[in-house]
Structure formats: structure tokens, C-alpha cells
């Protein structure tokens, strides 16, 4: 008897929490926040080029680069390196990233690099970099695009404008969305 009753209760609650609830939320989400519920897609010339929330790979020096991704920006599945403070592998990749960055930015060996460009993100898809990391890459991008001084000034201004401050002035850290920055850069 207890088994039968439990089974019936389970079925009802399963229906309620596994079908009605998620579908109800979906209906509300589509009505209230349609774009958000479908992945916050960004379009250019009517074509989707990515999600504003997910980092994508940028390799050429014409674009700002997102933070290192231990899973190489894979989305299915995403992942992190999970290396600890005494990991030889992590120490080595940090060194390699540093020398690569210094070379591509034509900087002396003593130059300091923003930490978020040396250390990989948690999701492997962190869409943001710190404002310092953006400043750090400005020169590389401007050089790769052969920008004249006037355009350089505009790029600098644009970059300033794209810094997101902490949400509501309180939560989180100041940051720059790399994809949105790069799209704005192409329109410069």
C-alpha cells in the first residue's frame, strides 16, 4: 500500500515540478525576456556571430583576446584546467603565456602583464577581461590595424566607454566584454 501511494504521489509531483514548472517558466521567460532566454545572441548584418555571454576564440592581433581557456573555448562540454598552486603544468603554461604575450605585444621581458591574461578562467568561456587587460592589448590591436593617431584616440575613447562598472554600482568587478568590444572595433 505504501509503495502504491508513494508511487502516485511521486507521479503527481514529477508532473508538477518536472513538466508544468519548467514549461511555465519557459512561457514566462519567452514573454518577458525572449532574447535572454535564447542565449543572448549577438548579430552582425543579421547573422548571429555568437553569444554576448560566451567567450569565443580570437587569435589574430587585429582583435582583443579573451582570457586563456583551459578547454580552448570548447562549449560541449566547457571546462577548466583544475590545476593547483603546486602544479608544474600550470606554472609552465603561465610562463609560456607570458612569453607569448610579451612577444606579440613587442614588450621587454620586464614588462608586467595583467594577471587575468595569464590565468585561465573558471568556465573556459569567461566573456570578460579586466580593464587593465584591455589597456594592455590596445597597442597591439592598434598596430595590427595600422590605425592613425586620430583613430587611435577614438579607439581609446571607445574602449573607455565599453568598461562595465560593477552592477548597480555594487556587485562584482569592473570588466569589458571582449566580443562586444571587438564588434565595436570593426565598426570604428
Amino acid at each position: 500500500m505504501i509503495i502504491l501511494k508513494s508511487f502516485r504521489l511521486f507521479l503527481i509531483l514529477m508532473l508538477l515540478t518536472g513538466i508544468i514548472y519548467p514549461l511555465g517558466i519557459m512561457t514566462a521567460a519567452k514573454m518577458l525576456f525572449h532574447d535572454h532566454s535564447c542565449g543572448s545572441m549577438v548579430t552582425r548584418n543579421g547573422m548571429p556571430v555568437g553569444s554576448a555571454l560566451l567567450a569565443q576564440k580570437f587569435e589574430t592581433e587585429r582583435y582583443f583576446h579573451p582570457r586563456p581557456s583551459a578547454c580552448d573555448f570548447a562549449t560541449i562540454p566547457s571546462g577548466a584546467g583544475n590545476q593547483g598552486a603546486t602544479s608544474k603544468a600550470l606554472t609552465q603554461s603561465v610562463r609560456e603565456r607570458a612569453s607569448k604575450l610579451l612577444a606579440s605585444h613587442a614588450l621587454p621581458l620586464t614588462a608586467s602583464i595583467p594577471a587575468d591574461l595569464l590565468l585561465a578562467s573558471g568556465s573556459g568561456l569567461d566573456p570578460h577581461i579586466s580593464p587593465e587587460a584591455m589597456d594592455f592589448q590596445l597597442e597591439m590591436v592598434a598596430r595590427a590595424r595600422n590605425l592613425n593617431p586620430e583613430k587611435r584616440a577614438r579607439l581609446r575613447k571607445l574602449a573607455r566607454e565599453l568598461i562595465e562598472s560593477p552592477q548597480f554600482g555594487i556587485f562584482g568587478e569592473p570588466r569589458v566584454n571582449v566580443l562586444l568590444l571587438n564588434l565595436a572595433l570593426d565598426d570604428l
Binding site: R67, D116, L119, A120, E173, R175
Partner: peptide, 17 residues
């Protein structure tokens, strides 16, 4: 953080947080 020589432990963390 001895790996980078500055007080920043951003490995495995997200910028927005």
C-alpha cells in the same frame, strides 16, 4: 600567488565575480 608573483588568484575564476 607565487606563480605570477602578485597577490592575484584568478586561475579558475571569472572576471565578473
Amino acid at each position: 600567488n607565487p606563480m605570477i608573483g602578485s597577490p592575484c588568484w584568478m586561475e579558475g575564476k571569472e572576471i565578473r565575480f
